[in-house]
Simulated scan of single mutants.
Amino acid sequence: MIRSRTVWVTAALVTATLGATAVPTVAAPAAAPRAAAACPTGWGSLGKTNSASTPGDYVTNARTGRHDCYDRFVVDVPGASAVQLGYSVRYVAQLIQDPTGHPIPVSGGAILEVIVRAPAYDIDSGTATYPGRVGERLPGVNLTGYRTFRDAKFGGTFEGQSQFGLGVRARLPFRVLQQDGHLVVDVAHTW
């Protein structure tokens, strides 16, 4: 009886071992590829304006950011409410400094002129509130690695409004967002 039990246990162990090795291994499923971002469409490339004014408020900074679907340009105007923040954003053949009429070279396949209806200086003291220099690249802005933006220049301030030029890869759709203290311009990577 001991011998038959030993044979039975041995047979069970051999069967279990063979059965375990005979089970095919299944590879773990590969990670699903990251879905492409669903990018908005329908922004268009025609000029956009809001004739509101920002009395007593002024430009303090201009900056950029990269997103999955667009490159972003932001002009900071602290104290300005969204409804007071006036602007004009449009594609131009050349960035022309107001009021001199001098062209400012901007690299890229197309030029987007951004005018914010706020000066870049304190009206009461005459002190500059934004360190940009006319015709120069925007201070602190590095466009390396951007998909759409190629260049960003300061056009200066005249009669209570500040001018910027964005060099973009091509004439692409854009949108303008007014937020408290900020004007935001998003330029899509594609149509």
Rank of each mutant, 00 (worst) to 15 (best):
R3E: 10
T6K: 08
V9T: 04
A11L: 15
V14W: 09
T15R: 05
T17L: 15
T17I: 14
G19S: 13
A20T: 13
A22L: 14
V23D: 14
V23T: 15
P24Y: 08
V26R: 15
A27G: 08
A30Q: 15
A30I: 04
A31L: 12
P33L: 01
R34N: 03
A36D: 06
A37Q: 05
P40Q: 07
T41G: 14
T41E: 10
K48Q: 14
N50C: 12
S53Y: 07
P55G: 11
A62N: 07
R63M: 12
T64Y: 06
H67Y: 13
D71P: 09
F73G: 02
V75D: 03
P78C: 07
A80E: 06
V83Y: 13
V89A: 09
Y91A: 12
A93V: 07
L95N: 03
L95Y: 04
I96Q: 10
I96C: 04
D98Y: 10
P99Y: 06
G101E: 05
P103Y: 11
I104P: 00
G108Q: 10
G108N: 08
I111R: 00
V116C: 05
G126C: 08
A128C: 00
T129I: 06
Y130E: 03
Y130R: 05
R133S: 12
R137Q: 13
R137A: 14
L138D: 00
Y146W: 03
Y146R: 03
R147N: 12
D151F: 06
A152K: 01
K153R: 15
F154S: 01
T157D: 06
F158C: 09
Q163T: 11
G167E: 04
R169F: 00
F174D: 07
R175C: 00
V176R: 10
V176Q: 09
L177F: 10
L177T: 15
Q179A: 07
D180V: 02
G181K: 07
V185I: 07
D186T: 02
A188G: 09
A188Q: 14
T190K: 06
W191M: 12
